[in-house]
């Protein structure tokens, strides 16, 4: 371990809730700049792991570092170096586009000058000049998701955690969203993503599959398909998670 190319290192992560073992000795690492797919059935233990990696929950045991920081002692440092977005938690519906951007940029500790610059750049990039003073609630779902993602990386984090970011989104927007993920990854941000769309698993550089608290497979999509003699990650998933 302690490899400079790894941004997340997890060794024997165990998390118990009473007698229930939610994460059963997980060991894996995520490389700097990669798009890492974190798959598993509902209840497999994914959310528990993500909460630990984001510094929101303490593991029962194991050695875990995120962006070079220890998940037991340096959770506040971790939070400053990551971004997070999910379908459920994203933006304040009753604030405007601009207000949401400024609010989050402020929370992440950007200076007033930086906030002004980045907010202007972002609004322009997303083509939201005319909508910048509209409240988020009035925007189409797809725009909200794209904006939420952009805000999650406005402070240029080392890693962004995306928890089912594309649920319920139309097929064109879903792909535009992945264009943005690719771009972020290209700019050096590590992407840690969960999804129920198995075609999206194919876009990841490496994919892990969890079942009943354990990682049962971890490889490139091509490697998984080869190992499990399947034509798609969907097929691999069905073999492992059922």
């Amino acid at each position: 371990m302690d490899n400079k190319n790894n941004i997340i290192e997890v060794e024997n992560l165990v998390k118990k809730f009473g007698r229930f073992v939610a994460n059963d000795s997980l060991t894996f690492e995520v490389r700097k700049g990669e798009i890492f797919g974190f798959l598993g059935a509902n209840g497999a233990g994914k959310t528990t792991t993500i909460r630990i990696l984001c510094g929101l929950s303490s593991p029962t045991s194991g050695k875990i570092s995120v962006a070079g920081f220890d998940v037991y002692k340096e959770t506040e440092k971790i939070k400053k170096h990551i971004g997070y977005m999910s379908q459920k938690f994203s933006l304040y519906e009753d604030l405007t586009v601009k207000e949401n951007i400024e609010f989050y940029a402020g929370i992440y500790g950007l200076s007033r000058n930086e906030i002004r610059q980045r907010s202007g750049k972002l609004i322009k990039k997303l083509g939201l000049e005319e909508e910048k003073d509209m409240v988020i609630g009035s925007l189409p779902q797809g725009w909200k998701q794209k904006l939420a993602f952009s805000i999650a990386i406005i402070h240029d984090p080392d890693i962004v955690f995306l928890d089912e970011p594309t649920g319920g989104v139309d097929p064109i927007t879903r792909r535009q969203f992945w264009d943005m993920i690719y771009e972020a990854s290209h700019n050096g941000i590590t992407v840690f993503v969960t999804t129920h769309y198995m075609d999206e698993a194919e876009y990841c550089e490496r994919v892990s599959i969890m079942a009943e608290g354990k990682i049962v497979a971890l490889d490139t999509p091509a490697g998984l398909k080869k190992t499990f003699n399947a034509s798609s990650v969907d097929e691999v998933f069905l073999k492992l998670a059922r």
């Binding site: 598993g40 059935a41 509902n42 089912e164 649920g167 319920g168 129920h196 198995m198 969907d234 998933f237 069905l238 998670a241 059922r242």
Partner: peptide
């Protein structure tokens, strides 16, 4: 089936 994993959906 929204938010349900691929196995449970099937």
């Amino acid at each position: 089936t929204t938010g349900v994993d691929a196995v449970s959906r099937k």
